[in-house]
Amino acid sequence: MSGAFDLILCLMILGTAGIALFVRDALAAIAFFIAFGNLMGLAWLSLGAVNVALAEIAIGAGVTGILLILARARLLALGDPVHSGDTPTWLWLGAFAACTSFAVLLAATVLSITPESGLDRVVAPLMPGLGIENRVTGVLLAFRAYDTLLESFVLLGALVAVWSLAPARAWPGRPAEPRMADGQMHQVAGASGRVLLPVALVMAAYLVWAGSDLPGGAFQAGTVLAGGLMLAAMGGAIGLPRSDRPLLRAALVLGPLVFLAIGLGGIAAGGFLIYPKGLAKALIVTIEYTLFLSIGVTLALLVAGPPVADSPVPDAGGNG
């Protein structure tokens, strides 16, 4: 892309970041943060990193944005002040000086590194053996599948960690309904949620399938599914499940478990996480589809938060 476009993009990224930091109204700050995330996604796109761009927009802007909006609503309901307090000038100046010097040092470091992608030369000749085209998928699900396997358990563990915050009388219950307090907003969310969930499902399924050869894959698709589930829940189109529902537990562990089982099955073919010859693509696609489902459900429940008591207690959110 042209230099002018890149320059404008960089200025807009800095501008939205600055406004998100300095604006006093929390809702405005969130709005600019989401805009910032989307612009960062464009920057990644402009650098040719399509997979990173998808992840940045879906998680950095989308999921985090929803999380911030829900957090603001929770704080408002608790009667907490949601605008930032006064920060002493010396702190601003100190933080500015520290961040600037770190940024300069980091920039000098990055510029000192000779740009060459030696790993790309290593990856390319290995791809035909897998039967897929997307090198990122090759790295995530073959060459570095072990990292991805462990990461899928980190995500599962994150949900367990959120659940561990549930108050004793709320366990095992449902998370707080992420309903919009405002009637009109609720209607909008309800209508769009009903429409968007099936669209999200189709889009996510396509992203997984395309992920073998084009940018996409289980993580991006899982985020899209999570977004659809969250919007549907916010509009009341679907309810949130109890944390002890067997079906829910099965959906959560399905992806990591299938991945682990295929990894252990590899021992028969010679070693942990070895794909038998000719089966690589089939196994990778199996892992990706199951993982996408589990990631989607896990992410949606992560945003929904820990179970809260059924009785209408205003501050039952694990706060305090």
Partner: peptide, 20 residues
């Protein structure tokens, strides 16, 4: 046969079982 991976895979299996 090399089973080093089991030291990681087995606790992960127990984690899944505990959740189920």
């Amino acid at each position: 046969m090399n089973l080093l991976g089991l030291l990681v895979a087995v606790p992960l299996g127990f984690m899944v079982a505990a959740l189920l």
